[in-house]
Design a protein around this nucleic acid. Structure first.
Lengths: 222, 222
DNA sequence: CCGACGCATTTCGCATACCGTATACGAAGC
DNA sequence: GCTTCGTATACGGTATGCGAAATGCGTCGG
């Protein structure tokens, strides 16, 4: 065997670790769009068997990160403006609902968690750490989803948010000023949720995501 | 081996066949809510190995038909009004978008296909065949999704529609008059799409689904 | 020089076997 | 009699091997 394992995975639930690694690799572009993925190669690289790899690849397919090329293997999903538009067409109303539900089911703990993550976002923004900002921003989104207390909604957003994160990370890298827009909008979202104002939470969320969309769109004018 | 296979599956893509069978069983209630599913037993029943069974169960989990009980196995997802509300909260805007996009991307073939399925729905309604009506109605929904020409939207709806179908079938069985409401609303949807009126397509779709929701809700007042 | 057939390779689908863990039941001790 | 510990068992996670379908390439014939 020529290829040494890139990194040996630790014991508990190989598949979960592997999933995280591969998702990261796709979102951050280490695995470029259209890259071919072969079960055997991945298994060999990470020093595991094909079984967990199969599970992971199927899951990532469901998350929209991979596309199946007929009888051949899987590819990293292509990046395109068309795809971006598809994702955001769905994402806008769903994130709006999540914010509205988070406001309806508002809890002191939930708001506190949001404030904490918002603080992380501000710090990263002022430090100019694009990757740190991105990670905090993802956590912020996840916290709102969790606060919505709606398992079905979370499940659906799970099949969309990973796909969206690819575009978001790329956009933050290209247009760091997008962080300003994001911080400003997030402030409004936290306030609306804290005040239990579901309609305003929905509308500021939808507005923010629409604006982000238009900005990101400029990066991918195929 | 004591248990004879319930039914032996044919060759091409065992997993797909198995998936269809199990999804059917859940939607039509042959596998009741909360029923425990064990990989070994399913494999034995259908005369296949655990590998395809695992794939299928994971897929059905993503479709919201099964829930994972921690380290233990999978159960058929519970039926509850709470769950119904969650599903429809997401389904209303997504189906609305699908109808609107179907109108935007209107094609003569697409409209023709919708009309054909609509005719099937009418026939089944007048014959009083609840199951036939249900099947035609599902086909109608799928045709609109396909006509929207949006892979991401189809993927998301795929993670929701199966779950919704459980409630829809149960509701048609209990309230056959729901068919009248459905036929009437579907007529309006086809017309709006045929006229390329996206806004009207969205609004009549959302109205129909909301009305269905309220009707179904009466069946599941936990 | 071009096209068609056939072989080798790639890659996935499915089967089978093993292992670790979590649960439940029974026995032993307090 | 109740609690607790150990063992048996059931189940999912993982490893591995085999076979079939599709693809690409090379060669042979026109």
């Amino acid at each position: 065997m020529i290829n040494r394992p890139v990194e040996r995975l630790s014991a508990p639930l190989l598949a979960d670790h592997l999933h995280d690694r591969l998702v990261e690799a796709v979102i951050f572009g280490d695995l470029p769009a259209e890259a071919r993925l072969v079960e055997d190669s991945i298994a060999e690289q990470y020093g595991v068997s094909r079984s967990p790899v199969r599970d992971v690849l199927r899951k990532m397919e469901a998350e929209g990160l991979l596309t199946r090329e007929g009888a051949k293997g899987l590819n990293v999903a292509p990046i395109s403006r068309r795809d971006l538009d598809e994702v955001y067409l769905c994402r806008i109303p769903l994130e709006g609902i999540a914010a509205a539900e988070a406001a309806v089911n508002r809890s002191p703990d939930g708001v506190e968690a949001l404030e904490a993550i918002y603080a992380r976002m501000r710090e990263a923004q002022q430090a100019g750490g694009v990757r740190d900002y991105f990670l905090a921003n993802v956590a912020f989104t996840d916290a709102i989803h969790a606060a919505a207390r709606n398992a079905t909604l979370v499940r659906l957003l799970g099949g969309l948010s990973k796909q969206a994160q690819r575009y978001r990370y790329a956009a933050y890298t290209m247009f760091p000023h997008l962080m300003d827009l994001s911080v400003e909008g997030s402030r409004k979202i936290v306030d609306a949720i804290a005040e239990t104002d579901a309609d305003r939470a929905r509308s500021v969320t939808e507005t923010l995501i629409k604006q982000s969309w238009l900005t990101i769109r400029d990066c991918f004018h195929d």
